[in-house]
Amino acid sequence: MNAANWPDAPSSTTEKLFQLENVRVTFGSGEREVTALADTDLKLTKGEFVALVGPSGCGKSTILKLAAGTLRASQGVVYVAGREIGANPIRIGMAFQNPTLLPWLNIRDNVMLPLKIVPPYRHQYRSKRRTEYKDKVEALLEQVGLKGFADSFPWQLSGGMQQRASLCRALIHEPNLLLLDEPFGALDQFTREELWEVMQNLWLATKPTVLLVTHDLTEAAYLASRICIMQARPGRIIDDRPVGFARPRTVEMTADPKFVSLRENLRTAIVTARHSLGDTK
């Protein structure tokens, strides 16, 4: 990657927890080259909750993979905590659309997994896993309404409960950056609304920086403090707007005229982008 593109001064970038600078991601080569993400800039300030919305194939998940470090940019630079990604690994937590709990571990051990892997927790894993870490897991499980389920196995829990456990696993190691890849997408409406509240409370408790990918506009407006709208083929960010509603937000607020108008604005922006795309083709 380009060393010349280092941030101008460390002081100005320390607050930028995650940053994409002119990032381009392509798959394949030659005739078959597909641009998943074209010349994208994105900045996440520490403690921000940013939602990425857009149609499928717009590169939302690509941005998450860049942040998670499972994908490299073809061009441009990805900064994490003011330094090029990989140089200064920060703690990352991630929840996926599927709960992806390990079926052979009970909920406690599943949630504890990051403490076994991520420094500095890993160094004391052996000595603390039956005492301090165990209490930590139980406390977090209680926060999401899973008190008493620590000894259960994933298959004994409903989809919504598994997703709660998955959120716990994403948060147990107090990540600086929380990545959410449509974690509520596979749930029914009521469970989803419940989990929005759970998620909001978790975020308010420790204020991690969050990057949420979703195609549910209500979800984005409910949870996020900023929404980035993306467009497909090639994937890029076309709009970026703050969400000013006071917290804690409630499900009732989603019927508020201001909330409804924001949601309709978002919808219009996405639909317009799709139409203009049709014209250029």
Partner: peptide, 11 residues
């Protein structure tokens, strides 16, 4: 997906 869980943790 299960491997991705570990990779994002820097395993």
């Amino acid at each position: 997906e299960l491997e991705d869980v570990m990779k994002t943790l820097g395993a």
